[in-house]
Design a protein around this nucleic acid. Structure first.
Length: 478
DNA sequence: TGTTATT
């Protein structure tokens, strides 16, 4: 059945800024039609290279370019390729003759020959992300759900390596209008059995958003706390580095100039940011993880963000929807009245000063252009979001006053050090606080100081419980 | 005891 067909996904279809093409075999002197179609070829055995594939495709016309996709960082064959014929007609012939028509040796699914995603300008605007599915729901179930709203071209449930559904899916309609009508009809319309919230139906992330998401995940996953220290020695430094270059390239392209600052992260997702100068980085190596960036520094940063560099600070969350709460400490004084959080205040102000650049935060500057020996682009400062600190830096706080939001929580803990994030958990249904939350510091000593001072601290009828957050894998509660 | 998952 066609419903479940899925082809290898392309992560980075184009060589990015500063990197070399993975493998391109243009036949010299051959021009392609203006309206040539770039084809995506999927389900290719990983032992076949361009030269092996050429004969198969040449029978439909002269090839302009054939490129097997390789993993950007490991160099591994991704099992797919891009193919552009000189003539548009050749592409159409090849697609008709080959797409899903034959299975190459060693493959379990038929070859895919179809226009590359990049060819369908705005294909994104008809592709939906569907969340809050029941993990038992199959492609077919999802298909049935969306079928009434238009012609579905693709329907894929996202699964982990074990084949279990992640509870979300992609559905591609043939038109934007159909996709929009599905959103209108289905988003929030029902709650699947076992799902924690109502159905989510929205347009899928753009590549840019996806890149940002990856970066955030990477930061979280590897606990990269101070990128300037962590990246060069991390196994993933090349990966991180390349992502950042890519991000920088995207941003540079989308802003068409060197603006200061320009923007790169959704402001609403920013809890904390760190700065990293990725200027003077060498071209991204196509394979191997061993080349550390030549120069990662945190020294030359536009003045407005200097305070944030090489350190993290508490960033106030967006207002919680209700006015700031005046806290009454029933034992008289706040526990930390003598400490003045000046450094943190300064940092907060620095951030507040740039929050007006709403959507994203990437700073670019032309400061170092004058000695741009072999550096094709201006220095770019990239800011990463960090949601939690290293182990020993994250606190779990229980028995918070009902009215406390993220900001109040942060204010309460700022005096003990640099708060890199604060989060009060809210009940989704009632939008009420669950009276517990997390605070993360940038160092364990601050966390310990906060525990000493705040654990058992009485607010109203309750006493705060302040403990180290249980590490993810810990089975033993405190 | 970090809520929702993005090929």
């Amino acid at each position: 059945m066609l419903l479940t067909h899925q082809y290898p996904q392309i992560t980075f279809p184009k060589p990015m800024n500063g990197s070399e093409p993975i493998s391109i075999h243009p036949e010299s002197g051959n021009m392609k039609d203006q309206d040539a179609i770039k084809l995506f070829i999927g389900q290719i055995p990983r032992n076949l290279e361009e030269k092996d594939l050429k004969p198969l495709f040449e029978q439909f016309g002269k090839i302009h370019e054939l490129t097997v996709l390789k993993d950007r960082y490991t160099g591994m064959h991704k099992g797919c390729a891009f193919l552009t014929y000189c003539a548009r007609e050749s592409a159409i012939k090849a697609q008709n003759a080959l797409h899903e028509q034959k299975t190459l040796p060693g493959m379990t699914r038929p070859i895919q020959v179809k226009p590359a995603d990049s060819e369908s300008r705005g294909g994104k605007d008809r592709k939906l992300f569907v969340g809050m599915l029941n993990k038992q729901q199959t492609e077919e179930d999802v298909y049935r759900l969306f079928e009434p709203y238009g012609v579905i071209e693709e329907c894929t449930v996202l699964r982990g390596p074990d084949g279990n559904s992640k509870g979300c899916a992609f559905v591609k309609f043939s038109t934007h209008t159909e996709a929009q009508s599905a959103i209108s009809a289905l988003h929030g319309s029902q709650t699947m059995p076992g799902a924690s919230s109502s159905l989510v139906v929205k347009f899928a992330d753009t590549d840019k958003e996806r890149t940002i998401r990856r970066m955030q995940q990477m930061v979280g996953q590897f606990g990269i706390f101070n990128p300037a220290i962590a990246l060069p020695f991390s196994t993933y430094s090349s990966y991180a580095h390349a992502l950042m270059q890519q991000q920088a390239a995207i941003m540079a392209a989308s802003h068409g100039g060197y603006l200061t600052p320009s923007v790169a992260f959704p402001a609403t997702q920013i809890h904390q940011m760190g700065a990293l100068n990725i200027n003077s980085l060498p071209p991204t190596p196509m394979s191997g993880l061993s080349s550390p960036p030549a120069n990662i520094t945190t020294s030359a940063v536009p003045s407005i963000v200097t305070p944030i560099v090489n350190g993290f600070t508490g960033i106030p969350h967006q207002p919680n929807g209700h006015p700031a709460v005046e806290t009454v400490y029933t034992n008289g004084l706040p526990p930390y009245s003598t400490q003045s959080p000046t450094a943190a205040d300064t940092l907060q102000q620095a951030f507040t000063g740039v929050q007006q650049y709403t959507d994203f935060v990437i700073w670019e500057t032309t400061l170092m252009n004058s000695h741009s020996l072999s550096i094709p682009h201006s220095p770019t400062f990239l800011f990463l979001c960090v949601y939690s600190g290293p182990e020993g830096c994250n606190l779990f706080i229980y028995h918070l006053p009902q009215e406390f939001g993220d900001n109040e929580l942060m204010q309460m803990f700022l005096p003990f050090g640099t708060v890199i994030s604060s989060k009060v958990f809210m009940d989704r249904a009632t939008n009420q606080s669950k009276c517990f939350g997390f605070v993360s510091f940038d160092n364990p000593a601050s966390a310990q100081a906060a525990i000493q001072a705040m654990n058992g601290f009485q607010i109203g009828m309750k006493r705060l419980k302040v403990q180290l957050k249980r590490p993810k894998d810990a089975s033993r509660p405190y």
